[in-house]
Structure formats: structure tokens, C-alpha cells
Design a protein around this nucleic acid. Structure first.
Lengths: 148, 148
DNA sequence: TGTACGAATGATAATCGTTCTTATTTGCAT
DNA sequence: ATGCAAATAAGAACGATTATCATTCGTACA
């Protein structure tokens, strides 16, 4: 477990809540978690964290570059581990599962378009909302609130 | 003024608040308005509408296909007239002005990617957040809350 | 042209995700 | 060990949005 170094190098004290949150993202089945998701999972694991702390920690991790924040439809922020390579998202409308993809052509065209309009891209988000074409959606249907 | 027909054909009674909101979108300088924007502008015009009504009407118009809703960063929904042709958005980080664009290559690649992953696209949103490359941002700086 | 009835409205309470406040606890350098 | 700044938990506060409900309005029909 090399997490304490992650935190230190990010200029953050190595505290229990922070370690737990980081651990959750590194070991959870779902890559994409909302604050509420993180909070509930920690409570279920017997941890005693406050919701406010979860929000604070997630924001700090985002600023430290450990996590990436996404705004899918539905009003709540969703976070995932920052593993360097940028990617876009396709959200299954049946089960809310998130698939990641990266397309060089799309990225390149975005640069071209922005340049043509006189802008320098700082960030972008491309979300595709789609239906599975398979007869039975292979993604496990979620009973709880969508996690994205 | 052919608005009453718009409403009728959408299965909506032609009421004063609805006419006023539609009129605002058709005549406002800004294409992109939030619920709060609409509410304030109507109040400034001397109309006596309730905020709840504005939210209700905007949602109905979205469902009727008269308006399109966008979720830019910042937590609030922004609406614009639905004029048929889909387009994506580039948001100026200096002034929050929204520029629209459409790129066939990007659209095509999205289809390709989705198909390859076994999805049928139902909707998508591409938001580019960028800085103006001109020395002075040509877009009027907003003093009020961002309208996008 | 009036009228009745259901739909639409405005005021306000409630909800949801998130942030702020504050008293208390914790990490860690000394 | 000890002190102090930083971090925490609990809950209040917040902004955007939705729900509730009594009142008003639009319109089909007499």
C-alpha cells in the first residue's frame, strides 16, 4: 500500500478518511463513484466518516490530480481515478454503466474547430448517451440510485 | 406572432406565462438562458410570473421539443430554442459566452465509436471549455451570474 | 356570451446535492 | 510526550429545482 506517499506528494496529510477514500477508488468494482456512493460504501465498511468530509476529500483529490470529476446528466458529480490518459464516456441508458473510450480523430477535430473559432482548449467533456444494441443489456442493472 | 400555434401543436394551452417565455427566447439577445435568467428578465419586463412556473414551463417546452436543455459546468440548466440542427458548444472561460459549432467528422466518429462498442446513440453532449486566443476577449464580460 | 370544469398558476414548503461553520480531534514535527 | 496547525464530524446553510395546494385562468360547450 503506497497510498500515503500519494497523499504526501500531493501535499496532503495522511489521514484515515483520505486513505479510505483513495483505497475505495483503487479497489472498488465501479470506477465511477459519486460522493454519496463513496459515503455509503464507507459506512457499509464500518468506517465512521462524515459526508462533509467525503465532499472535502473528493474536491482535494481532484485539485491534487488524483481524481477526475465528471458532470453527467442527473445533477451529481461523479469521480474516477486519474490514471493519466484522458478519455471520453459513453453512458448506457439502460443500466447507467459507464464505458470509456478515446478517439484520436475526435480529439484532433476538436483542436481544429477550437483553433478555427479563436479558442485555446483548456478542457472538454464528451458524453454519449446510448442504448445497448444487444438484446439483453449485458451491464448489470442497478437497483440503487445510478452511479454512472 | 404565430406562437399560439406552436403551443397548440405541442398540446399546450396558450397561456400568458408560456407565451412570454417563448417570446423571450425568440427575441432575447442571448440564445442561452437559465431559469433564473428567464425569471429575472420577465420580472424586469413587468410580467408577474412565479419562479415555479418558469421552471415548469421550461421543462414542458423541453419535452415538447421547443427548447433544448444543456448542462454546462456550474450546476444550473441552460435552455435554448430548438431550431432543428444539432450543434455542440464551446464555452469561453473568460466571459462564459457560448459559441456553437457543428463538425461532421466528430459526429461521424461518434457513431463509429458507439457502434464499435455495441451502442446506439440516443443523445450526446460535447462541451469545450476554452480561452480566447485574442489578447482582449471580444465577448462582453458579464457582471452578473454567468448565463453561458 | 356566460358558465363550468379541468388545467395552469403563484406562493411557499420541501428536496437534493453540496458547501459552510464550529467545536472537537488528529497527525506529526519538535 | 506535547503542542499546534490542520483535519474532522455534525449539522446548519445554501442554491437550484421540484412538489404541494389553494386560487385563477382558458376554453369547450350551452
Amino acid at each position: 500500500m503506497h497510498q500515503p506517499e500519494h497523499l504526501k506528494s500531493a501535499g496532503l496529510k495522511s489521514t484515515l478518511p483520505r486513505l479510505k477514500v483513495l483505497d475505495l477508488f483503487e479497489n472498488s468494482k465501479e470506477r465511477h463513484l459519486s460522493a454519496e456512493d463513496v459515503y455509503k460504501q464507507l459506512l457499509n465498511s464500518g468506517e465512521d466518516v462524515g459526508l462533509a468530509t467525503v465532499y472535502r476529500v473528493l474536491t482535494q483529490f481532484e485539485q491534487a490530480g488524483l481524481l477526475v470529476r465528471h458532470h453527467f446528466e442527473g445533477g451529481k458529480s461523479v469521480f474516477e481515478l486519474n490514471q493519466g490518459e484522458h478519455h471520453d464516456h459513453i453512458v448506457c441508458l439502460q443500466c447507467n454503466h459507464v464505458e470509456e473510450f478515446f478517439d484520436t480523430a475526435i480529439e484532433a477535430r476538436q483542436e481544429k474547430v477550437a483553433t478555427a473559432l479563436g479558442f485555446a482548449i483548456r478542457d472538454h467533456s464528451l458524453h454519449i448517451y446510448a442504448d445497448c444494441t444487444k438484446k439483453k443489456c449485458p451491464h448489470k442493472r442497478r437497483k440503487m440510485a445510478p452511479t454512472y
